[in-house]
Design a binder for these strands. Structure first.
Lengths: 206, 206
DNA sequence: GTGCAGGGCCGCAATTTTGCAGTTGTGTAA
DNA sequence: TTACACAACTGCAAAATTGCGGCCCTGCAC
């Protein structure tokens, strides 16, 4: 038996996918307002209560969003002593990706294109992403000798808040930019553009 | 939603059936000794431990046997004050039936015909059936005015033991008789014959 | 307005499933 | 014979699921 995942983890993944699939499909068919959490649960063959064990809101299920997380391997690679902006940018991209569960074959895209009202929910998730990344950066700064000087004058929390805001600016920019054409390609292009823009702007404003 | 059964009960029934099905099918394909409980569980998509939450032994799963039980409605109809032998006979048939879970479309018959070694397990279950019926009869006798006299000279447990033995004789007889041709028809015919035989013998031996 | 039903969502206790670490018995290679 | 793998089966604690009562909000009939 190929068991990269335990039976428990495999079933958890399956249930998550079943709920997201059901939510997305039913939404595509009837629109988000004419779908009940109960119907989604029934379609996924679990109880209505279990639905809320997996998703905080109906919209999260429709979009297939999950709380951001960082793999230990990634964490090990993260260093604050050089190229911090670059590091934080990469981390943000990675963590945003971690909020989008399921394989690439999700119905998310179709749903977002069909019902743009749902789009706002992704911004809410970006806040969670930033929070998580801030925690990581804060920890890095606290432990770093290089940052000791600055950390003496400002709280590490405030330093990382500012850094994450700057590093996250391209993503916020890209999210607004690609709002009306939310394909994967568009998002990626928008982010690339925004990154370049940041690089040009930064030297000019100090 | 048609919910005669709660979601919980429905899933429990499904899992039971999935395990029995997997056990029977794998046995038909490979023989009972070359099937592991682990393989059965995997086929039914549950853990190895869960298998034993449903069945006490591998053979029980193959045969689809479950502990005997009596519906409350049946219990209400059971009276010890008249035609006791008849009543107990009926009850025995009913309770034996209750040990055979699943719909009629079970692979049980095929398995038993293919691997007669498994047959013995059904005798073990008949003991459980008798025990359960004895308890019912004992309770009836204890509460009955008609039996007060006899119950004064013998313990109610002993009285019911004897009655159940007599009432169960045809079933034991039939089980031996139909051992080599265990189809439903054969079993039923054997039981009918045995019942008639009992009725003829009884008056002669007092 | 006022009541009321419907639906999102949460807390909690009961039930079920899982993982894991045994124990036991049996076949079998050394 | 000994050693050992394998498979049936069990106890127990952690995790997942379920049922249920309840809160809050919104829309809709009256």
């Amino acid at each position: 038996m190929s068991q990269l995942l335990s039976l428990r983890d495999r079933k958890r993944t399956e249930t998550w996918a079943a709920l997201h699939e059901a939510a997305a499909r039913l939404t595509l068919e009837n629109g988000p307002d004419r779908v009940t959490t109960e119907a989604i649960a029934a379609q996924a063959n679990v109880s209505a209560r279990t639905f809320f064990n997996y998703f905080g809101t109906k919209e999260d299920a429709i979009l297939g969003l999950q709380d951001p997380s960082i793999d230990d391997a990634w964490l090990a690679d993260f260093k604050v002593d050089a190229n911090l902006l670059e590091q934080v940018s990469r981390l943000l991209v990675y963590v945003v990706h971690s909020t989008e569960g399921g394989d690439g074959e999700s119905l998310r895209m179709e749903v977002v294109q069909q019902f743009p009202q749902l789009r706002q929910r992704r911004f809410a998730y970006f806040l969670k992403v930033e929070q998580l990344v801030r925690d990581v950066v804060t920890a890095g700064i606290t432990d770093s000798a290089k940052w000791a000087d600055v950390a003496h004058q400002h709280r590490a929390e405030d330093i990382s808040r500012m850094i994450v805001l700057i590093a996250g600016a391209p993503m916020r920019y890209a999210m607004q930019e690609s709002a009306h054409a939310p394909t994967l390609d568009n998002q990626f292009a928008a982010l690339t553009t925004a990154n370049a823009l940041l690089r040009e702007v930064l030297p000019e404003i100090q």
